[in-house]
C-alpha cells in the first residue's frame, strides 16, 4: 500500500504528472464520444430520410454512389 501511495505521489511531481494524464484522457475521451455520437446521429438521419423518401430518386442516388468515379 505504501509503495502504491509513493507511486501516486510521483516523487513530488504528482501535481504535474496527473494533470498531464488527466488532460490527455479528457481530450481524447471527449473527441471519441463526440465523434461516435455525431456518426450515430448522421446515420440515423440518413436512414430516416431514406425510409421516408424511399422512391426511385433515392434508388437512383444509391446507384450513383455505387458508380461514383
Amino acid at each position: 500500500m505504501d509503495t502504491l501511495l509513493d507511486q501516486l505521489a510521483m516523487g513530488g511531481y504528482a501535481g504535474f504528472v496527473w494533470p498531464s494524464y488527466g488532460v490527455t484522457a479528457v481530450a481524447l475521451l471527449a473527441l471519441a464520444v463526440g465523434s461516435v455520437r455525431a456518426m450515430r446521429a448522421r446515420e440515423a438521419e440518413l436512414r430516416d430520410l431514406q425510409a421516408s423518401f424511399g422512391d426511385r430518386r433515392t434508388a437512383a442516388l444509391k446507384a450513383d454512389a455505387a458508380h461514383d468515379p
Binding site: A38, R42, E43, F53, R57, L61
Partner: peptide
C-alpha cells in the same frame, strides 16, 4: 485510425443527407 474512420463515415452520411435534401 479509429476516430478517423468514424469521422469519415460521419462525413459520408452527411454528404448523402445533403444530396437527398437537395433532390427534395
Amino acid at each position: 485510425v479509429t476516430i478517423l474512420l468514424v469521422r469519415v463515415r460521419t462525413e459520408i452520411a452527411s454528404a448523402k443527407v445533403r444530396a437527398i435534401r437537395l433532390t427534395q
